[in-house]
Design a binder for these strands. Structure first.
Lengths: 252, 252
DNA sequence: CAGTGGTCTAGACCACGAA
DNA sequence: TCGTGGTCTAGACCACTGT
């Protein structure tokens, strides 16, 4: 037989392409550097643009690249570690909190949240919007659902909505004794609303962190926070110590 | 003006399609039910197959669908909650552990892991392979890196590799007093090796959980676990209580 | 072997950002 | 206005699974 090597498992082109690009990123590019545009890259590798894009999409998903319409594709910095859980339980808005309250209205939460809160479907609750910025970049958008029963007697007249009211709700929450909290992390895609705040396109991959706050043996509040999956590594440290990883890349 | 509504922001077709399909899944399909094939669906909605696939990909990413080559597209059950962290710190392999050790060899860990372990680049460490099954389905594959210094004097002769040796390494680890552990969660794509074990294609989205085990003020071991992002919701509860959510869907 | 999803092509047009 | 990435099309062939 003259066959040198019968490809037992033909590797998809985009997969091989991703590997090649990934290695090139490590060795030949610096953080922030812009890559050639997609049409040129595709031509250079002798593939269709769609195939090249499949490789780029994966690299972006892994946080290696950042693509912006109208601008270009740049080499992304290593993912930033974002502290999500600490050993001690604290209410949102407590001292040292990195979230910025932006608004507060009364809305009917999604059914999934209503189920956790044990409120009736369609029942309105205080809904605090907060956003989180790290290293000058928006990294997360949060909706905090607080049923009326957790913050009774909140004056409804002054500051019916807005950041001021958000802070008022958070202050009321501090008064309760927090007995525990439970978290879940899952993959999701950004709703149009969140995408805008995170400076991404709708459908961008996000890590959804659902937190249940327990006080007086009840679910006192539920937070649904969506983090940019491309730029964030969620840390759940006992201490504040960072886990460093990812290949070291040179600063430009 | 005769224009009824000038589309200020033309919604992409695949995005609209995703919404329509998502609602159909809630109301007209049961878990496990198979959808029409992609060519038929695309024709029915009057779009190209590539466009339809873009919508299906998103729904699969969100855990709503499951697609298998040669079989078809089925409606996925709600994501299963998988406990990842508990309040008390335990070594891997402790009682009640849901992981199954499958193998153990000496390998040089990836540079990122070597950095955490503070071992020299290229230095070989014990590498325990474990897999985790939940509800009859593989949900995670793990590589646990244990430097020689954490388990000194492990007999090298009997059982040089395999599950037996894996258990031996884990037993040795139990002897150390665990002082703390730190976790990080980020999005990744499955390496070919892990993909096979998770019954997915290479590049499938996974949640990568990196855990650093601390004993005697040192990093005694590092675990890198990759969870199927489509089927898993990682829970970090204080108690074992489940967070239920996701729209209720009917069993077939 | 038939039918499924996965990969790939070579185009086209659109939305956005910067100059 | 121009160049970028984002969307979309209408095909083709391949790899896998079941029968």
């Amino acid at each position: 037989m003259g066959t040198t090597q019968l490809e037992t498992v033909p590797e998809p082109k985009y997969w091989h392409l991703k590997t090649v690009l990934s290695e090139a990123l490590d060795s030949e590019f610096s953080v922030g550097e812009i890559l050639p545009n997609e049409r040129d890259l595709a031509a250079r590798f002798g593939v269709a643009r769609a195939t090249l894009r499949q490789a780029l999409e994966q690299l972006e998903l892994e946080g290696r690249l950042q693509r912006r319409r109208g601008v270009g594709t740049t080499v992304a910095p290593p993912r930033m570690g974002v502290a999500v859980g600490t050993e001690q339980h604290v209410w949102p808005g407590a001292a040292g909190d990195t979230w910025q309250p932006t608004d507060c209205t009364m809305t009917a939460p999604p059914n999934a949240v209503a189920a956790i809160l044990e409120t009736a479907v369609g029942e309105q609750v205080h809904t605090v919007r907060r956003s989180r910025v790290s290293q000058g970049q928006p990294v997360a958008a949060e909706l905090l659902y607080v049923p009326e029963s957790s913050v009774p007697g909140l004056p409804a007249v002054d500051a019916p909505s807005g950041a001021a009211r958000a802070r008022a709700v958070l202050r009321r929450l501090q008064g309760l004794s927090l007995e525990g909290q439970e978290r879940a992390v899952e993959l999701g895609s950004a709703r149009a609303e969140d995408a805008k705040e995170l400076d991404r396109l709708p459908g961008a991959p996000v890590l959804v962190v659902t937190t249940r706050f327990i006080a007086e043996a009840r679910t006192a509040a539920v937070s649904v926070a969506t983090y940019r999956a491309d730029t964030c590594r969620l840390t759940f440290g006992d201490s504040g110590v960072e886990i460093h990883h990812g290949p070291e890349r040179h600063a430009s």
